[in-house]
Amino acid sequence: MDFATIFFILVGALSVGAAVGVVMSRVAVHSALFLLTHFATLAVLYITLDAQFLGAAQIIIYAGGIVILILFVIMLIGSQEIETRAAYRTWVPYAGLALGLVLLSSMTYAIMQTPIKPVAVPANEGGVPIVLGMFLYTQNILLVELASVLLLVALLGALLLARKPKDEKSPIS
């Protein structure tokens, strides 16, 4: 077992532990911080997969943007104790856990059955920003334009949805 595998197992265990922490913690802010840890470990895994640009983008977009947005929303609407009302349905977490075990075992079986030959070639420069940028902005320029339009529409939609309705002629509420 070489160093890369040991490193992968350590980072992967940290990632899975943080994911379990997101699901299990009772306080929403703790979940958000576990989510931050999870995204950071995933960025490390992206870099070990020679996707350096996407590792940096993972940190910037997810850790810098999405987790901060979630934290702001937690502070806006409060993380009140809401799990007690549903506590009488005690079978729901066990049903979810059973379905998850079925999902995990079937996916692991499918992965194990698929013959994937080990990567023979040494890592290319596929993930550095210049190569990925040339790939995105020459062959896939339509994709970038669609992503920009999507982000613009999402920005406008979020603004429209989250504002307080101030008159009755408002299209929402």
Partner: peptide
């Protein structure tokens, strides 16, 4: 697959 399953659960 493990992370996906944890998210689904």
């Amino acid at each position: 697959a493990m992370i996906f399953t944890i998210g689904a659960v």
